[in-house]
Design a protein around this nucleic acid. Sequence first.
DNA 1: AGAACGATCGACT
DNA 2: GTCGATCGTTCTA
Length: 205
Amino acid sequence: MARLSREFYAGGTVETAQKLLGKYLVRMLDGKPLVGRITETEAYIGRCDKACHAYNYRRTERTAVLFGPPGHAYIYFIYGMYHCLNFVTEAEGEPAAVLIRAVEPTAGIETIRRLRFGDRPMTAYRRKNFMNGPGKVCQGFALTTAENRLDLTGDTLFVCDSPADIGLPRPDLPRERMCAGPRVGVDYAEEARDFPWRFWLEKEE
DNA sequence: AGAACGATCGACT
DNA sequence: GTCGATCGTTCTA
């Protein structure tokens, strides 16, 4: 299956966050693919960004993976209950990553639904808020710290350009434009609070 | 050893 | 709009 190569992740983090929009996140689970089209991302850059866990090259056991080669997963535990999925970017030694904030489920939807809601009944609210948050993406794709540091050029977790790369039909997509704005939940980060490093796709009329 | 806090979510007013 | 749940990571001592 064709997938994005390590070089895709090796460039600038803001640019990579933008280029990931519209691409297909694939998580293999029990031999079957869970797939989501990426619709929202955020860039985090240790060199200059007080919102980044590795700000000012702060290196701890948790952030070590950010200093490694690009194209690996950085998954951390947050708020005592949730996980967040990131892709390590830039050259080895430059700690930076893209947070995956939202996807549109494309395949494996029944498995994703069960991972998100178990046996609880589906409601309009749940349908509308299926995978529109970083904690939801990890819950729906069964990603925890057990998957931290996975190589995105491997067979468990990777990104494809096109649904055809994973044997799915190409859907009819509405016209979309990319929007940019401040990141979520980083009010503490002084000047970095206002960096417009959150990107998302929005339907046009 | 202890304490503070967080790249969130869902329930509720 | 508000607020509580819940615990690993990090820092301080």
